[in-house]
Design a protein around this nucleic acid. Structure first.
Lengths: 217, 217
DNA sequence: CCAAAAGTGTTCATCCTACACCCATGC
DNA sequence: GCATGGGTGTAGGATGAACACTTTTGG
């Protein structure tokens, strides 16, 4: 693992995790942002993050951060990548590993979020973010797009029951481009992860569209 | 970025980089391994790595490690991922970020490698590795496969001039399965990154195969 | 002549895209 | 009736897998 004679000579680092928390609401892919609580750049918009403790893995640290905000501990987390330019944090040298999370905005604990002063922002209209957090969001979105290419995304973003139009609009938001309704329907159904329910949603169209749910994985 | 009041309370970590160094020789995809120099697990086979200094990025640290071994500083490096289970290193708690590198075994400085006691191992016959290094190699190979799917791999692995059979055998080694010679030829040429040379290699076949080179990126 | 690699062409299945078309119904 | 979304079908293009076939030449 290393070239030195003993571990003890090596320099030690502050290591943080930052979470790109994606949500979906009203046709918009959204990211949860926070006004930074401490100096420097206090008050500027930031991803939610925290330092990693010595007794926990990066994933555990990210889960802990997410739990503090949302109250959930069963949230899917994907490692996006490590960001480590020596001067990326204008305060002190911090290595940060970015994690991507998908959550249902209407399901999480809104009180907890409000306590932190957090706010959802549409991904197309993000404010300026501190440090390299914009790069993190960009890379996380690429990850999400890759995920949506290989499997159907939505289990962690859509409500329990949804119409195919909702899944399509979610994917349109992820890919930032319109998708053909007929083709998307066929592809979505062919993946075999959706159960058709017997009830219809009649609020979005005159004819009414069947509700679907994700089958258990 | 964080939830605490000041950075100074946060715990500090040993942070390392480990390099999965891929080479290609004689039809085999190979990985460069080292007998570990320090306790614990001294003498066991290991990836090459090193601790990250406070004034360098993870990429810089990985480049430094590679330079010490190979004498090159223009090697392509890809971040594979962070490994951070608290007990992954049986010595002390170390977070390690894995990087993947591709080099030409016949081009690098063999003296430097020998100095370190390093040795090339075919990827299909790796010895037992320390800690979680086997997971690192596995993930790095997946990365390499994804790369070879989207573009033609070989610029950093094959000699300057090579035949199409050599590129194909490299890809067969990466994907661990035979590829149809005719189909591979067409796909490789259609990617538009190969220049056909006017000279032939006559040692591998009676008819002789034209040499190719990678066009400048 | 024969084996073995080089190189080309053909067929078939699959997947995606674009787009036409009918259905149901609230206004 | 008509606009709107729901839902189905189809033609064309691109891609890739399987495989036949011809070329070249050392042994």
């Amino acid at each position: 693992m290393m070239n030195t004679i003993t571990y003890s000579k090596a320099e030690k680092h502050l290591v943080a995790v930052d979470c790109i928390i994606f949500g979906y609401d009203e046709g918009d892919l959204q990211v949860l942002l926070f006004p930074r609580a401490i100096m420097p750049e206090q008050g500027c918009w930031s991803l939610m993050g925290g330092f990693v403790n010595l007794d926990e893995s990066l994933e555990s640290a990210a889960k802990r951060v997410l739990f503090n905000i949302t109250g959930f501990h069963d949230i899917r987390l994907d490692q996006v990548g490590a960001f480590s330019e020596p001067n990326r944090d204008s305060g002190e040298r911090v290595i940060s590993i970015a994690f991507s999370a998908l959550i249902r905005p209407n399901q999480h604990d809104k009180e907890l979020i409000r306590e932190h002063g957090a706010q959802w922002w549409p991904i197309n209209k993000l404010p300026k973010l501190i440090f390299d957090h914009e790069k993190m969001v960009e890379k996380a979105l690429l990850h999400l797009q890759a995920l949506a290419d290989s499997e159907l995304v939505g289990r962690d973003l859509l409500p329990e029951r949804f119409t195919l139009m909702q899944v399509r609009q979610l994917h349109e938001a992820i890919f930032r481009k319109p998708l053909d309704p007929g083709n998307f329907r066929k592809k979505a159904l062919s993946m075999g992860v959706l159960n058709k329910l017997t009830i219809k949603n009649t609020s979005e169209s005159k004819k009414g569209a069947f509700y679907y749910e994700f089958s258990q994985p």
